[in-house]
Nucleic acid binder design. Structure first.
Ligand SMILES: [Mn+2]
Ligand SMILES: [Mn+2]
Ligand SMILES: [Zn+2]
Ligand SMILES: [Zn+2]
Lengths: 121, 121
DNA sequence: GAAATAAATAGTAATAATTCCTATTATTAA
DNA sequence: TTAATAATAGGAATTATTACTATTTATTTC
């Protein structure tokens, strides 16, 4: 994977926010710097960055969102303001439970708690 | 919501399997009983059944799957055979953690553990 | 530093999943 | 039975994403 200006900007933009942006939002931001970039280029690079482990892809319902935070963590999703908040929840218990009770070898834990964030009383 | 034959069959089909089927799979099955049913009807009814609380909609990556099991539960997803297995994991700890540490009011807990099921040694 | 090589791009077409639209049909209440 | 209207089939539209291709650009070689 050789250097490209567009990938560099895309990576910087994803790294600049905690909002877990969608491809479309990233596209809008990149255009401020590269007005004629194509949406396909944004998608291709977001995928490449994910494959290289530079960012993470997460799913919010049916749409993909991108996350600069690669360390294992979970999310709180506020269904009032839509915000996705990073949290680190203990999951050793869960891992052990499924290993013991279901003989299931866990490689990845995905936890999303949906509800109301503290901005709404 | 008044009675419809198509909705009845769709509901029965979702209730007949533990496989968390996609809309397309349900469509294929319903056609064995109602050959000229339309895919739109399948989607509309799956949504209505979800809204009425008769089934649940869950997301596996970007595609919706449907689940007859309405009681709160979690999923193990085997990335070898693709199976989604129902499990009940304790989450009181998680709820309390986010309530205390983030002042976040949880209404729904979504946990998916990805890995390898016991069918693969 | 120019030429050769091939990865990356812009622009656009294609696909997949899902929703919307509308004339017709079927369910239910009177 | 009839009237009111929810639901349907069939197809068009939408949304998110991927694929295609001629051209551009980064990197390597001389
Ligand atoms: Mn995150
Ligand atoms: Mn389930
Ligand atoms: Zn909020
Ligand atoms: Zn398996």
């Amino acid at each position: 994977m050789r250097y490209s200006h567009q990938r560099e900007i895309i990576s910087e933009i994803v790294h600049s926010t905690n909002s877990h942006p969608t491809a479309d939002w990233v596209y809008g931001e990149v255009r401020r710097y590269i007005p004629n970039i194509s949406l396909g280029t944004v998608y291709r690079n977001l995928k490449q960055l994910t494959d290289e482990g530079i960012i993470r892809t997460i799913y919010d319902g049916a749409v993909a969102r991108y996350d600069w935070n690669r360390s294992p963590h979970d999310h709180l999703k506020c269904n009032v303001c839509g915000e996705m908040i990073d949290v680190q929840l203990p999951n050793d218990g869960l891992r052990r439970t499924v290993k013991d009770e279901y003989d299931f070898e866990v490689s990845d834990v995905e936890i999303t708690l949906v509800g109301k964030c503290n901005k709404h009383a």
